[in-house]
Design a protein around this nucleic acid. Structure first.
Length: 801
RNA sequence: GCAGGAGUGGCGGAAUUGGCAGACGCGCAGGCUUCAGGUGCCUGUGACCGCAAGGCCGUGUGGGUUCAAGUCCCAUCUCCUGCACCA
């Protein structure tokens, strides 16, 4: 009996079946494979087709691993603390807890439409006290190890979000979240000492199977450099200024020195004549915003009136102040070698400071220098005892030489700064610290965790630099766990990145109330084998979670120090003309209608078919028709052939093996768009035959199962099976059976295709050329053959004159 | 400015890494089915010339290597992404 393709009936049936009988179960014997999606924050806007794509990709991969004999850990959860969730609650006038719960319910419904093999028993939510108890616990461990500390300092402040931000959250001087210009604000902040892990975070990138792009971004963010710190005595004073340089080889060329206006000695270096100018400049720099500083790179500065002594040649060099020197990198002071540094050159030109070349370019001194010579290659000149050395060699040796001279030492520096970890907002994990007038900072005792948020009427940000929690007296006032006296709670909360820095560890042991994760389960199921998500977290979430994983490894909680073995960044789905989908642009495409009209299977395949998974793609609704037609045609092909009893022929066997080979190799290469076109191609091919045997239909359905699970399962049943198609082993192609005996190859004359011949793949040269010459006889007639090229299975080229 | 990626029909995109450019799909055109629209099915579809056979051009642009170049080399333009005074 032939049935039409009715996706609604089929998909409903299998949804129910799989709810009752999940296809992915742990029998304790299969090897594990952990395939993880970056968990979403439950936005009030729901999912659009772009979110869908990442989840489809990970599900296809999970099901493929499942059919390769793995038990696949494929969980889903909710990153529900943080600014977006809180802002949404404020906008809708609800309590964050309430609106978050609603949004989770909504998105969960949408995610279920994808029909992924998520194990909902593992579901977690970062705002669940059972979860964030352990987020707080990790903070306490960091504190105990001296990796969490409080510091008063000017931090990045978003006036729109009314909270402090980490460096990683500032993009081009603007808030990563809302785009407002970031300002500076002096605040007492909790910091995490990620810098203590800088070397390991950098070096261990080598171990990871990640996109080079992401590794490079992290490398640059961590920004390790090697050089030396060198002491420059201040002339006429019993003080010295230490500078950091990566080019100690150019020490003899240092003709001036520049301090950041914030440098502790800046004001004191002024003389009576320069005092006013110096003070004015310090004030001017302090008032300059981040954005000004980024956009306007023209050099400004002021001479302090004081001089330093170049410790190499004992020359007096002027000390200047300029905001092109950063206060919080290195020592906040630099030696300036205008001949060999672009910025110093520009500054020297601006303020008419002498320039001394110390590395010969092309063997000589440059006359009328118009730009700095920044390469470390050439012979040293004007450099006392270093004259004649190669700069590249000296660059490496100089740190030890200055050390011997007692004027400095080798030093390595990083661009990465410690992680500003506190936020002045309500909707985050409370930082479990109590401030006691007698005992100082005291941790909330572990048995009192989780420290929950108070339920309050008003939770809007204050903008004063204080968390809204500070206004809740009943919550703030408490007893010191150490001395029992009156004390106050810390009122800042953790940033949105806290929960996501370790959530992947928790999925495999979500209900454990004794430990963050049991050692046994961690060893058995972790770490993550494949992590799939957008590239926007390259230096935020992905750096923070590596840091926390390394820390948890160090304190013995887990036995591995990198969380994500392989990373895949899927491209973004955009609206027309590459415009990012957003509610305000009105170009959001919801998957709901598409699922209703075309079915889950069609949308799954279309999500893959739109383009290469790693690239951005413009969404075009119309294309889904093509995929739907394909699934209908495949369905009809099965209906026509299932009861026909078509016998296996050599040709069918060959096509079958070619199909397996094509789909498997493209899938392994993660070329999912061409997997879909491969299915179409073979469907067209099979449709043109007189009939298709059952084994080929079965193989086809099995290969299709990870992509379009419902139709594959239904076809499997139609073909007479009462077992699950997901219990089938992924087919393996026998390449010898897939090989064509003959192939049509092009025949070129002078490099241009003039005909084709059908010849045996392994035909010898004489046979091939004979056939080729016949095919293009009219093109070579009367001409002399200069050269004959035959590449078996590929091409024949006859060069004539 | 520096680093990385990309530029292929009307559109999304293929091309086993030097071997028949344009697979697959969308769209479009013609035909069949239909009272009609839609669906479905069949055929065609890079540009130009030609009734046709066929010819000729063609992967951002200009050069080069090679029997053969979307693919390799040199130069150049455009777009995207990241970094951007880190001494």
């Amino acid at each position: 009996m032939k049935k039409p393709y009715n996706h609604n009936v089929i998909e409903e049936k299998w949804t129910k079946e799989w709810e009752e009988h999940p296809v992915n179960v742990d029998d304790g014997k299969k090897p594990k494979y952990y395939c993880l999606d970056m968990f979403p924050y439950p936005s009030g806007n729901g999912l659009h087709v772009g979110h869908w794509r990442g989840y489809v990709i990970s599900d296809v991969w999970s099901r493929y691993k499942l059919m390769n004999g793995h038990y696949v850990i494929h969980p889903m959860g909710w990153d529900a603390f943080g600014l977006p969730a809180e802002n949404y609650a404020i906008k809708t006038g609800k309590q964050p807890a309430e609106s978050t719960a609603e949004n989770v319910a909504n998105i969960k419904k949408q995610i279920k439409q994808i029909a992924a093999i998520y194990d909902w028993d593992m579901e977690l939510n970062t705002t669940d006290p059972k979860f964030f108890k352990w987020t707080q616990w990790i903070f306490e461990k960091l504190y105990e190890k001296g990796l969490a500390y409080e510091k008063e300092m000017p931090i990045n402040w978003c006036p729109s979000c009314k909270t402090g931000l980490a460096n990683e959250e500032v993009v081009d001087g603007k808030c990563e979240r809302c785009g407002a210009d970031v300002t500076k604000k002096d605040l007492k902040q909790w910091m995490l000492k990620i810098t203590a892990y800088a070397d390991r975070l950098l070096d261990d990138l080598d171990k990871l199977d990640w996109p080079e792009k992401v590794k490079k971004m992290q490398t640059e963010w961590i920004g390790r450099s090697y050089g030396a710190e060198v002491d420059f005595p201040v002339d006429g004073r019993n003080e010295k200024i230490t500078v950091y340089t990566t080019r100690p080889d150019t020490l003899y060329g240092a003709t001036f020195m520049v301090l950041a206006p914030e440098h502790e000695l800046a004001a004191s270096l002024a003389t009576d004549e320069t005092r006013k100018a110096v003070d004015d400049y310090i004030t001017y720099a302090a008032n300059k915003s981040n954005v000004d500083r980024l956009q306007n790179k023209e050099k400004t500065g002021v001479f302090t009136g004081s001089y330093a002594i170049n410790p190499m040649n004992n020359e007096k060099i002027p000390i200047w102040l300029s905001d092109y020197v950063l206060a919080d990198y290195g020592t906040g002071a630099i030696m300036c070698v205008p001949a060999h540094d672009d910025r110093d050159f520009e500054f020297a030109k601006e303020f008419d400071i002498p320039i001394t070349q110390v590395i010969a370019k092309d063997g000589k001194e440059i006359e009328n220098m118009t730009e700095a010579y920044t390469e470390a290659s050439g012979t040293m000149i004007n450099s006392g005892e270093w004259n004649g050395m190669e700069s590249a060699v000296l660059k490496k040796e100089a740190p030890h030489m200055v050390e011997k001279k007692g004027i400095g030492h080798a030093k390595k520096n990083f661009k990465i700064r410690d992680w500003v970890f506190s936020r002045q907002r309500y909707w985050g994990e409370p930082i479990p610290i109590i401030h006691c007038p007698k005992c100082g900072e005291v941790l909330v005792p572990e048995e009192e965790l989780p420290l929950k948020l108070p339920e309050v009427e008003h939770y809007e940000p204050t903008g004063t630099g204080e968390s809204p929690l500070a206004a809740i007296d009943s919550w703030v006032n408490c007893k010191c766990p150490k001395c029992g006296g009156d004390a106050k709670r810390e009122t800042n909360t953790m940033p949105q990145w806290a929960g996501s820095s370790w959530y992947f560890l928790r999925y495999v042991d979500v209900n454990n109330d004794k430990e963050l994760v049991s050692k046994e389960k961690a060893d058995k199921y972790l770490p993550v084998d494949m992590y799939i998500g957008g590239v926007e977290h390259a230096v935020l979430h992905l750096l923070y979670s590596r840091f926390w994983t390394k820390f948890l490894y160090d304190i013995g909680v887990i036995g591995f120090d990198e969380p994500f073995h392989k990373l895949f960044n899927q491209g973004m789905i955009t609206g027309k003309n590459g415009i990012k989908m957003s509610k305000s642009k009105g170009n959001v495409v919801s998957p709901d209608d598409l699922v209703r009209d075309y079915g889950c299977d069609s949308l799954r395949m279309y999500e893959l078919f739109v383009g290469p998974p790693e690239l951005d793609s413009e969404w075009d609704d119309r294309g889904i028709d093509g995929v739907y037609r394909f699934l209908s045609k495949f369905w009809n092909l099965v209906q026509e052939n299932k009861d026909k009893g078509v016998a296996e022929t050599p040709e069918l066997v060959k096509i079958r093996h070619q199909l397996v080979d094509t789909i498997s190799s493209r899938l392994e290469a993660f070329s999912l768009n061409t997997v879909v076109s491969g299915f179409m191609e073979f469907n067209n091919k099979l449709s043109k035959l007189d009939g298709v045997d059952k084994a080929t239909l079965e193989t086809y359905a099995t290969l299709l199962a990870p992509f379009a699970p419902h139709i594959a399962a239904e076809v499997w049943e139609e073909l007479g099976h009462d077992t699950s198609i997901f219990d089938e082993k992924w087919p393996v192609a026998d390449k010898s059976k897939a090989a064509d005996d003959t192939r049509e190859i092009g025949v070129q004359v002078n490099g241009k295709v003039r005909g084709t011949v059908e010849i045996a793949v392994d035909a010898d040269k004489d046979t091939a050329l004979a056939a080729a010459k016949e095919a293009v006889a009219d093109k070579i007639e009367g001409k002399s053959i200069v050269k004959e090229i035959y590449v078996p299975g590929k091409i024949i080229n006859i060069v004539v004159k």
